[in-house]
């Protein structure tokens, strides 16, 4: 296994309440770990702790075999993408994509080539000079993704990045992110409360509850885990095939409640 991202014993308390409780995880290089959990279970805190956006109480973060938890955000090689694609409003699409490259003072030609390549890869042709305010939600998310890809980060952290998109765009974006991240061999952690999104995107899986993380190395192990919700989901689809006469499963119960 090629070293990607390793988190060991990460803990964090807010006002005395444990939000992360000795969380450990390991993602090999180029793979995507999908972490599923309800709102408030500590998913975002985990990502923000890994990225260095909040101070953690204890634990270590290792990227490609190098300890980074003592480093400032900008030196970790980790990019965090949140639910809102935060584009810089004073820069156009091209300016946003080139942001990280300009900071590291790459030659102008290289920046230009790289931006053109990203625009191509992410399906944003002809949009270089567009203002972020004039983009759709999906386009904005693609630019934010491209801005991260431009600096070739070792680790990408995705904090429910598709939750504000409509269903069609969301599924297109999931495919695109997955494809591109794999092509660039970027180690990725995705947190979501959407089971289907986790199943579509993940190589390995985690279940987060009350600040604790249970890791599963593959889809089969994850599906078998009682808390994953896969069993309930399967029951739902079974119900759709067999009809309401089955009289069991969550959907049937929900239906009965509504009639009462």
């Amino acid at each position: 296994m090629i070293a990607g991202l390793d988190v060991d014993g990460m803990s964090k308390r807010f006002d005395g309440r444990p939000v992360l409780d000795a969380v450990s995880l390991s993602v090999p290089r180029g793979e995507l770990m999908a972490v599923l959990g309800p709102s408030g279970c500590g998913k975002s805190t985990l990502l923000r702790g890994i990225a260095g956006l909040i101070a953690i109480d204890s634990g270590t973060v290792t990227v490609a075999g190098r300890r980074v938890d003592h480093l400032p955000v900008r030196e970790r090689g980790i990019v965090y993408l949140g639910q809102e694609p935060l584009l810089f409003p004073h820069l156009d699409v091209g300016g946003n994509l080139a942001f990280g490259l300009r900071l590291s003072r790459r030659p102008a030609q290289e920046i230009e080539d790289r931006v053109r390549q990203l625009v191509e890869e992410l399906g944003l042709p002809g949009m270089e000079r567009r203002n972020p305010a004039d983009l759709s939600g999906g386009e904005r998310q693609r630019v934010a993704f491209g801005r991260a890809l431009a600096i070739e980060p070792a680790v990408l952290l995705l904090d429910e990045p598709f939750s504000s998109l409509d269903a069609m765009t969301r599924s297109r974006m999931q495919g695109l992110f997955r494809r591109v991240a794999r092509r660039h061999a970027i180690t990725t952690v995705l947190v979501t409360h959407d089971l289907k999104e986790a199943l579509v995107m993940g190589d390995r899986f985690g279940l987060m509850q009350n600040g604790r993380l249970l890791s599963h190395p593959d889809r089969a192990a994850f599906a078998a885990a009682p808390g994953s919700g896969v069993a309930a989901e399967r029951a739902f689809w079974d119900l759709l095939d067999t009809g309401p006469s089955a009289q069991s499963g969550p959907a049937a119960r929900g239906h009965g409640d509504r009639d009462a």
Binding site: A51, L53, L86, A148
Partner: peptide
């Protein structure tokens, strides 16, 4: 958060 995003992209 934009400041955080920039830091993630390598900004001091």
């Amino acid at each position: 958060a934009m400041g955080d995003a920039a830091a993630g992209l390598g900004a001091s």
